[in-house]
């Protein structure tokens, strides 16, 4: 067994399964705190904001028993620190910390005057995993929230990833680099294809046609494969065609696309085949042979694409 596996095993023995608490809320559930939350979130639910007997948004659950701004727990709380395990992982080099999942059940909504306390149990410390952020392990905490009558009002399972930050080109973003949205990959526009992309920017789907033998072709290429002529012109497609095949892509989800992302191979009425996106029809309703029409849409600055819609079955 490797050194790091041993270290994690020791942490497991020390922390997993130990229920610690109580941690008390600094204050009773108050309209002031609820109002501050609603103001921040843009929440307008009147039940949260009424002048008396307001209830608290259930999603506030975890915040009630948090430490104060200085890191202190409220009086009468246990002096054990739930997050000691995270500190120990820090000292092993897993200094990165990110919450990765959250599963909360709300047994009853809290209301003004409720005084909450919580208990916390480390449920699991995973084996080492390779993740996109770096090597690390997942720590799963289970928290229970009780009111002043010791009635359970909610619970939450929270999983954190503790990782060794890696310095790879994939994840290392320079501090000063501006945050860049991930856009669609722009096509290469070269001598052979620029007309096609410019045509789309001008709102036209252009098909290459050989000037000598009139054979049409797509995607663009400089020489006619039928007569070897280098002379060509374009004709504008009427954008009608028939679905030859299709796929609905579910995974991986690549920004900036919406999923499922439906791609169709369309036999255009002019006689060439083109791959493009289709919108407006659920994947399970699409059939080979459906008639489609494209409209040209500017999908991002400087990039226009034909987007198809089904017009007839």
């Amino acid at each position: 067994m490797s050194e790091s596996h041993k270290e994690l095993d020791l942490l497991r023995q020390k922390f997993v399964g130990q229920r610690v608490g109580p941690y008390y809320a600094w204050n009773k559930v108050s309209r002031t705190q609820v109002w501050q939350w609603c103001a921040a979130m843009g929440e307008t639910n009147p039940n949260y904001l009424q002048k008396s007997d307001a209830v608290a948004p259930p999603t506030m659950l975890q915040s009630w028993t948090f430490r104060d701004v200085h890191g202190n727990y409220a009086p009468d709380s246990t002096d054990k620190n739930t997050y000691e395990v995270l500190g120990e992982l820090d000292s092993l080099g897993y200094v990165g910390s990110v919450a990765v999942s959250y599963d909360q059940s709300y047994h009853r909504y809290l209301k003004e005057g409720d005084h909450v306390h919580s208990f916390s149990t480390i449920k699991d410390i995973s084996d080492l995993k390779s993740t996109g952020l770096g090597e690390g392990c997942f720590v799963t905490e289970f928290a229970e929230y009780f009111d002043h009558d010791d009635q359970l009002c909610g619970d939450a399972t929270i999983t954190y990833l503790k990782y060794k930050p890696q310095q790879s080109s994939k994840t290392n973003r320079s501090e000063t680099a501006p945050l860049k949205k991930v856009g669609r990959i722009s096509p290469v526009e070269n001598h052979d294809s620029k007309h096609f992309w410019q045509g789309l920017r001008d709102g036209k789907l252009l098909i290459q046609e050989c000037s000598e033998c009139q054979t049409k072709r797509h995607p663009p290429q400089p020489m006619c494969e039928t007569c070897q002529s280098l002379e060509w012109q374009t004709i504008e497609s009427n954008c009608f065609g028939t679905i030859y095949s299709y796929t609905a892509i579910h995974y991986p989800e690549i920004p900036p696309f919406d999923y499922p992302n439906v791609i169709v191979l369309v036999d255009l009425d002019e006689g060439v085949r083109i791959a493009a996106q289709l919108e407006g029809t659920q994947p399970e309703k699409i059939e080979i042979g459906d008639r489609v029409q494209a409209h040209i849409k500017e999908v991002q600055d400087g990039l226009a694409l034909p987007i198809f819609k089904v017009t007839a079955k």
């Binding site: 095949s245 191979l265 990039l303």
Partner: peptide, 29 residues
């Protein structure tokens, strides 16, 4: 590669699974 894939990548049509899915769909049909 980039010249070729320019006709597919901008639509999110970017993985081998999605390309070969077209053939599989047609085979089913």
């Amino acid at each position: 590669d980039m010249i070729h894939f320019s006709h597919y990548f901008p639509t999110g049509f970017m993985t081998p699974a999605s390309w070969i899915a077209m053939c599989a769909r047609r085979y089913m049909h």
